[in-house]
């Protein structure tokens, strides 16, 4: 069975400061990729969405990118 990125790397807590990791789950417009494309578990997908939104608020990630 295919494991998702975070459980494969043993990441229990998805941190909003880790922009390098978060960026691989964004499309070129800065939108969060769908559950289908990321292949994450439902739990990790929710945690990822929260982390991205926190990062956006702090100006680490864009709300909209060209």
């Amino acid at each position: 069975m295919k494991q998702d990125y975070f459980s494969a790397n043993n990441i229990k807590y998805i941190d909003y400061k880790d922009i390098d990791i978060l960026k691989r789950f964004l499309n070129p417009n800065g939108k969060i990729m769908s559950h289908k494309r990321t292949g994450l578990t439902a739990k990790n997908q929710r945690a990822l969405a929260l982390a991205v939104k926190n990062a956006r608020f702090m100006g680490l990630l864009p709300f909209v990118a060209r």
């Binding site: 790397n9 043993n10 807590y13 941190d15 990791i21």
Partner: peptide, 11 residues
């Protein structure tokens, strides 16, 4: 715990 992942691109 420290939440910033040290290992990267392991997968």
């Amino acid at each position: 715990e420290n939440t910033i992942a040290a290992k990267r691109f392991v997968y």
